[in-house]
């Protein structure tokens, strides 16, 4: 590993300054992704700015909803009693991610920024436009079983690996950023990007910006389920995942919120399906229709065609569970 400097500021302003001073600097929090990237030779920062001492670990609740510090651990957030009570979808999604050991280290801010798990991205001897712009997409004509069916480009077909992001998307979370030019808030749907011709950019975060927290508005969506289909029971990325949230009056859907994971470069919000569901009566048939509708515009590659079938089934099933039609 390349030698690097290590600093540990205690204030956000100092942290941002530390990054500004050095173009080869990176923030590190839990390090569950960055350290791997450094070991594999994908990242080689000159300086690591450890932000763990910044006061960004609070979870607060008010009338508008929740404010969650960027350094909140995935495990603390998942187990937080108000989150479990008011936002069980988020808790479920967090617990479906990674392993207990990783969740104990990983932070909310780091999870928002984790890089794709595309194997071509991780192997420096293979082409990858995300790692080395212009080198080509290894996955496009390679092994692409885990890859995108929505929103991909010829430059990149990788997916965002996070479970938390999928739930945050369905919950309309806001990402709070702080940088040299001040603070700004970005709705999660606008935070992550589609690859287009700049797949090296996962999100819209500025070069010297720091995620300080997220806010999640109070939600009337009380009937929720996070369904994750994976190759083993734990410590596996989603083949397909669905965050389903419903506001029900009896058996009538007042409003629905739906997002998918494992299918795109960003959490894939299904707004068209949400509109379709609003005002309808819950039924297995309706939910299956919703799944089919969600597949509009989907495009598969050589090894991920199964997702075209698995994804709509999963949407239907997640909605059935969320609405109480069937047991989990």
């Amino acid at each position: 590993m390349k030698q690097f400097q290590y600093v540990r500021p205690t204030e956000a302003g100092l942290a941002i300054n530390a990054l500004l001073k050095d173009s080869g600097a990176k923030f590190v929090a839990g390090g569950t992704n960055l350290l791997d990237l450094m070991k594999r030779g994908i990242e080689a920062p000159e300086r690591l700015v450890d932000i763990n001492r910044l006061p960004l670990k609070e979870i607060t609740k008010n009338d508008q909803g929740f404010n969650i510090g960027a350094l909140t651990l995935n495990s603390s957030l998942a187990e937080h009693k108000d989150i479990r009570k008011d936002l069980p979808l988020l808790s479920q999604a967090l617990l479906a991610g990674a392993s207990a050991q990783l969740r104990n280290m990983a932070t909310v801010g780091g999870n928002l920024l984790q890089r794709t798990r595309c194997p071509y991205f991780y192997d420096t001897s293979m082409p990858c436009n995300k790692r080395l712009p212009g080198s080509g997409c290894g996955a496009l004509k390679g092994f692409n079983r885990m890859h995108a069916i929505f929103g991909a480009s010829e430059h990149c077909i990788a997916v965002n690996p996070s479970d938390m992001n999928v739930a945050l998307s369905a919950l309309d979370a806001i990402v709070q950023l702080s940088g040299p030019k001040g603070k700004r808030n970005i709705p999660i749907q606008d935070f992550h990007r589609l690859p287009g011709d700049r797949p090296e950019l996962d999100s819209v975060i500025g070069k010297n910006e720091l995620i300080t927290g997220i806010s999640i508005p109070t939600s009337a969506l009380k009937h929720v389920h996070y369904l994750k289909i994976r190759d083993r029971s734990s410590y596996a990325f989603a083949l397909v995942s669905v965050a389903a949230a419903l506001d029900l009056e009896g058996t009538t859907i007042r409003w629905a919120s739906l997002a998918m994971g494992g299918v795109a470069h960003k959490p894939w919000r299904l707004t068209e399906v949400e509109t379709f569901l609003a005002g309808q009566q819950i039924s297995a048939g309706l939910f299956q229709e919703a799944g089919t509708l969600a597949m509009r515009g989907a495009k598969a590659y050589e090894h991920n065609e199964f997702k075209l079938k698995l994804a709509p089934l999963s949407i239907g099933h997640a909605l059935s569970i969320a609405s109480g039609l069937v047991k989990a």
């Binding site: 392993s99 194997p119 192997d123 092994f143 029971s233 734990s234 596996a236 990325f237």
Partner: peptide, 24 residues
């Protein structure tokens, strides 16, 4: 899993190459 264009394995860590976890 191997990518035969390169003759190189692409599942080469314990996150991508699966063996059972306790829950399995």
């Amino acid at each position: 899993v191997m990518d035969h264009r390169f003759g190189r394995y692409i599942t080469k860590d314990l996150a991508d190459y699966h063996v059972p976890v306790h829950a399995d």
